[in-house]
Design a protein around this nucleic acid. Structure first.
Length: 200
DNA sequence: CTTTCGATCCGT
DNA sequence: CGGATCGAAAGG
């Protein structure tokens, strides 16, 4: 099965992209091995959205968000974790889709080693967790997802097949303090790999 | 320059 | 429920 890159044309509209990315595969190849997972939970962050890092304009940190779609935006949060985004929208518009959870597909033992946990359910069910499981870091920030060690692929082109069909859930986002009611979080109902946000 | 605080996770 | 841990961004 040839591995096809995820069509960048599907990233033009950020909300639609957040939906379209459900089922796509994120794969990272390193000397340690290959890790990959299917995207099962996303959040859209928009230009006129106060919860969006790029809302107050372009800064050194948010620069990747203003670049062309199909690249990575990875940032440090709480001084210890990192979050991975797919840059979306036209160049010059600071928008992106946060990847919140993956269904582990490949390299599970490597993921376990990197995460320091055994339970498969705790490998990629959170934005910080999946970054750690895939071994992503600052070096991947602002890199292309079309080619290279970190790739975004269409679901059908990856061993494991496409995701099962289920009702789409569109609900408020997790962990933000502004624009808390915008329905910009996407996942399929009943998917067991979706994160379980901390009730705080 | 100083202070604040976050698109999180984990152990208790 | 509190702590870790640090840099970006806001405030003075």
């Amino acid at each position: 099965v040839p591995k096809a890159p995820f069509p960048v044309s599907l990233l033009a509209d950020t909300s639609a992209a957040a939906r379209a990315l459900l089922g796509a595969v994120l794969e990272h190849r390193t000397s340690e091995g290959v890790t990959a997972g299917r995207i099962v939970e996303t959040e859209a962050y928009l230009r006129e959205d106060p919860a969006c890092h790029a809302h107050r304009g372009e800064t050194p940190r948010t620069r990747p968000m203003f670049g062309p779609p199909g690249r990575a935006y990875i940032y440090l949060i709480y001084g210890m974790h990192r979050c991975f985004n797919v840059v979306t929208g036209p160049p010059g518009v600071g928008e992106a889709v946060l990847i919140r959870a993956l269904e582990p597909l490949a390299g599970l033992d490597l993921m376990r080693r990197r995460r320091g946990v055994e339970d498969i359910r705790n490998l990629c069910n959170g934005p910080g967790k999946l970054v750690q499981a895939l071994g992503l870091g600052p070096a991947h920030n602002d890199t292309s997802l079309a080619r290279g060690a970190l790739r975004l692929l269409v679901a059908d082109s990856y061993p494991g097949g496409p995701p099962a069909a289920a009702p789409l859930r569109v609900v408020p986002r997790v962990g933000i303090s502004v624009a808390v009611d915008l329905p910009l979080r996407f996942y399929f109902e009943g998917n067991p790999w979706v994160s379980k946000p901390w009730t705080k």
